[in-house]
Amino acid sequence: MDLDAYVAEHDAEWRRLAHLTGRRRLDAAEVDELVALYQRTATHLSALRSRAPEPALVGRLSQLVLAARARVTGRPRLSWTAAGRFLLTDLPAALYRCWPWWCGVATAFSAFTFFLIWYVAGHPDTAAAFIGVEAARQLVDSGFAGYYTEFSAPTFAFRLWTHNAWLAAQCLAAGVLVVPVLWLLWQNALNIGVVGGVMVSYGRADVFFGMITPHGLLELTGIYVAAGVGLRTAWAWISPPAHLGRGRALAEAGRLAAVAAVGLVGLFAISALIEAFVTPAPLPVVLRVAAGAAAWLAFLAYALILGRRAVRAARAT
């Protein structure tokens, strides 16, 4: 192929296509011309790729064809209907389909965390081995409560949001490997267990539970959801249903995990706002705990009640 001759022959068509693609309004004749030029240029691009793959020209025509295709097919726009369907149907249904997994993880690791708190509180030498005597005293005197007021509330909320979202992303992404998820859960339980055990052993159980409960109910539930969904993905690979192949089962579990991941971004935003603004607020403990419990119960109702309805509606159609 004589590349220079080919460009000279078709360059006017490519320029015309670029002009039509960039215009905001087209009449009927121009739309027909756009479609014809788009099809013709796509053919030119295919010929160049197979016969004379000159990188600069192929890149130019690739961008032109993609832009023209978007103009012909229409650019996707945000649909409030689609957003509502996601929030009211897709997300709760995904959470409900995975509920045995994340409820199981929540039960097991909550029990394990409380065991660690009880054990460390009853064996002060254990806490000393983990963090040291002086560090334990500093934690009780000011470190634990001071953690919630170390930064301004908006900055603290953003830090918490990104940290928890990253932790959840690790659980979801590494779920198929199983061991990394269990390791992250162990680290989380150990951290809470040691800190809680130290606070309880020094007679500050009221401070510990009064400050961790408002946000901890929702935050820990989000982490358990991420871990449960991740482990469910692993199980789809290890033991796929009889009517599905391993690849298809893993793909379906991955789609559910992707939907859950989007929902957890919002959940952790809410828990971060509670931890930054409600947990350290000068309010009675009862009110702070009630606010956190209300958010937690709202999430459970969303996932289990609304999710069950969404799943049943999908099966009925």
Rank of each mutant, 00 (worst) to 15 (best):
S62R: 15
A108G: 04
G74W: 10
A108F: 09
Q63F: 13
S79H: 09
P100M: 08
F86L: 12
A67N: 15
V65P: 08
F86V: 03
T73C: 09
W102Q: 02
L91V: 07
A106T: 07
R69W: 04
L87S: 05
L78I: 14
A82L: 06
A68N: 01
T89E: 06
A106L: 09
L66N: 13
S110K: 04
G104T: 07
V65Y: 11
Q63R: 15
R97K: 09
G104C: 02
L91K: 10
R75I: 06
G74E: 07
A94S: 08
L78E: 07
D90T: 15
L78V: 13
L88W: 02
F109Y: 07
A67G: 14
A70Y: 03
A94D: 07
A67P: 08
Q63P: 05
G104Q: 07
T73S: 11
W101L: 05
Q63A: 13
R69S: 12
L95V: 04
W102M: 08
L95I: 03
F112L: 12
Y96H: 14
A67W: 13
G74A: 10
W99E: 10
S110D: 00
S110R: 01
W80Y: 01
T107A: 14
F86R: 00
S79G: 05
Y96W: 10
A111D: 04
A70W: 09
W99R: 05
V105I: 07
T113G: 02
A83D: 04
A83E: 07
P92K: 06
A111G: 08
A70S: 15
A94W: 05
P76L: 10
W80T: 07
P100T: 01
A94M: 09
A93Q: 09
G104W: 02
P76S: 07
